[in-house]
Design a binder for these strands. Structure first.
Lengths: 406, 406
DNA sequence: GGAAAATGTTCGGATTTCCGAACGCCAGAA
DNA sequence: TTCTGGCGTTCGGAAATCCGAACATTTTCC
């Protein structure tokens, strides 16, 4: 995890503390604006040199407090994520600030590694204005992005391999947009729509000109379409080919369903997108990206993604990869019950208590409760009589009433 | 500011503190459920007597911590607003809880007035003016009604799941009538009438226009009809789809009898109607509704539903759900002997002298037996699996089967 | 207002329930 | 054939439930 390209405002009057944070943040690649007065902080955040991705703010300052700073900002704008650090703060203050929308609150002295983790967690999601959408922040995802950038600069065919829902089509598009052919057309042939695949291939090749042809679903490409494609490529086609396929595409060759020469032509430059289940940090990162985007359109907006939801996302297996994640978040943000997004919103099948088969104990308790209520109704709430009716001792009935909260 | 009509769960083991909060909350007009153990809190919040508007929770409890309670709740449902109170908490804990979605955090000792202010601030906003209950008055039934109203306002497909006799068709109709399509036709395809299902589907689709199509019995839909439906939906059909199915519809997908893509297309918005046996309060409520309606047409009218009849209705299991209840009341009101409706009128098969109240042990055993039979049915008689389903050891299940002669 | 009845609550011990570990049995797979 | 996995059955200890006794407190009824 790095802070490269991020702009962070540090408000801290203490030379030592401020110096060490400043130094460390720059080491991580962030650009840091360090101010030592509340007033300076106000202007540094209100009229920044660069968009502010986050603020690290001490509470006690020579000309005021961090709280005042935060409050002043809130009055005029929606402030960037604030991480407060303080030496002598109290619980009340922490609660007050968090409820006011601060992102985190850490007491001094703290351990620098933990501090950086928490800071990275809360930073405003990248704006992605200039950078195209990325795959993620994990090592694997970065390699994918790096390869995509590298291959975009070249002009050879590319094969993208990965499970469903990992954005293979999006990646193909990104390579095109970063390449010199970006002004020419980007045409996609989807081999999964099996009918008329060959005709679609012919049309696409006619249409693409000097652009990029994306063959989506190389594994399912019909024989005729394969032949057509390879013939065109052999004849020095003017377009660039990007193909995408499932991880197990080699088996298709072994099974005789895919021409080996076609695959090896493409395979010289290959990008493999690892499944989301192998990089949980990307799952949470992606979730946050989606959440921000979706929540912006929500009325009223949610307060955030609860930390439990985050860890559940991290633990889930995501067999449907990014597509599943996106679908679940879409649904969750739309249907959220409370003010925060909880695990049950994202995985409604967990709770829902609905079709889950009840255990013996539950069935038993439900029946007991029901019978007790019935007995109490019949006796007008007389516990002793109800106990007699139910043939249990008064004590037992009392115990059970406690248990069921009656 | 008053708490009139609000239901608050108080989780606090300390007598003095709990007592004073309890007293004060009731003074303000709230109905309070006070529990002293984490486990009790869990059940009091999960299966509440009344919808919970807020929780006041101590952190340190004899059988766990408030944090654990909160976390356990988060896993299965979206928790009501939590206000934590604690004597020896730390800043880290406060920050952690607030970031997990807790609403507030107060340290003891605190001033009661301030506490009340903060509590009032976070309470779940008042339910929108009670639309008259349709499905029932229980928490589960209200949820069904609320979901129906919410989904009626949107325009996506809906899946209604529930046992027979719960009024799935009526609910589908209600969603249509509340929606913007109410002027357009409401057409129902009943897949259970297996002959000509595909033809019926074609006809219905032709007929529905821009209205609502109710696919009744999604689980029994023929392959041809499924294909037809999904093709129509994929082609941007002008109508809205509401499907109804049995609770175990997922098994149909596993068995290969129902197309997964069709189910997941519908399943994004799902309403589950809990069986009547899980909400006895609705059984009596429904009985009263039916009774009123039926009695109005009777000459001479009955004086009412005897309290014994009521408790018998509450205790009955209603395997046929609302439909059975309606049928029995119809019959009972017509054939009633006396001036009041007695249990023997509603359950004539029980014989005259059957108002003997079953003991707790009997009720418990009956419920156990029933649940065991259900589990064994579901697992095709596999004992080990059934035991897992019921969350008991194989030995215990065996013992009980002996006892019940299974 | 006061006695009697009912309720709230705790406690220790008797009883029941529950579980895991065994052991043998049997049917089907390899 | 052996091996495997599910089933029927027993057993001993751990955990829970249940009960009656006891006592304080509250409600009811005279």
């Amino acid at each position: 995890m790095t802070l490269k390209g991020r702009h962070i405002v540090l408000v801290e009057d203490d030379e030592i503390m401020g110096g060490s944070i400043h130094q460390r943040l720059e080491l991580e690649g962030a650009s840091v604006t360090w101010v030592k007065l509340m007033g300076r902080g106000l202007s540094a955040i209100r009229t920044p040199r660069l968009p502010v991705d986050g603020v690290v703010c001490d509470i006690r300052l020579p000309d005021g407090t961090g709280e005042e700073l935060y409050e002043a900002l809130c009055r005029t704008t929606s402030p960037p994520p604030f991480l407060f650090i303080t030496g002598q703060g109290g619980i009340d203050q922490a609660v007050r600030l968090l409820r006011a929308g601060a992102a985190d609150y850490i007491t001094k002295p703290f351990d620098m590694a933990g501090f950086l983790d928490r800071l990275a967690l809360i930073l405003r999601p990248e704006e992605n204005v200039d950078l195209p959408p990325q795959t993620g922040i994990s090592v694997g995802a970065r390699r994918v992005d790096a390869l995509a950038a590298e291959y975009a600069a070249a002009d050879h065919p590319v094969l993208i391999r990965g499970e469903k829902g990992l954005g293979k089509a999006r990646l193909a598009r990104r390579i095109h947009d970063l390449s010199d052919r970006r002004a020419a057309p980007f045409v996609e042939v989807n081999a999964h729509r099996t009918d008329r695949a060959s005709a679609a291939m012919t049309d696409a090749i006619a249409e693409v000109g000097e652009g990029t042809l994306h063959v989506n679903g190389l594994d399912s490409l019909s024989q005729a379409a394969q032949d057509h494609l390879i013939k065109t490529l052999a004849a020095d086609a003017p377009f660039r080919t990007i193909a995408s396929a499932w991880p197990a595409v080699d088996e298709r060759v072994a099974a005789g369903e895919l021409r080996a020469d076609l695959l090896y032509l493409l395979k010289t430059h290959e990008i493999f997108i690892p499944p989301l289940s192998e990089r949980p940090e990307d799952a949470t990162w992606l979730a946050k990206q989606f959440f921000e985007a979706l929540n912006r359109r929500r009325d009223p907006p949610l307060k955030g993604l609860s930390s439990h939801a985050e860890s559940t996302i991290r633990a889930h297996d995501w067999p449907g990869n990014g597509r599943e994640l996106r679908a679940r978040l879409l649904r969750a943000v739309e249907a959220a019950q409370g003010e925060w997004l909880f695990p049950s919103d994202i995985f409604p099948e967990l709770g829902a208590e609905s079709d889950r088969f009840s255990t013996l104990a539950e069935a038993r308790d439900a029946a007991e409760r029901q019978q007790i209520v019935a007995a109490l109704t019949r006796t007008d709430g007389h516990i002793l009589e109800a106990a007699k009716l139910l043939k249990v001792s008064r004590t037992t009935l009392w115990e059970k009433m406690q248990k069921f909260g009656l």
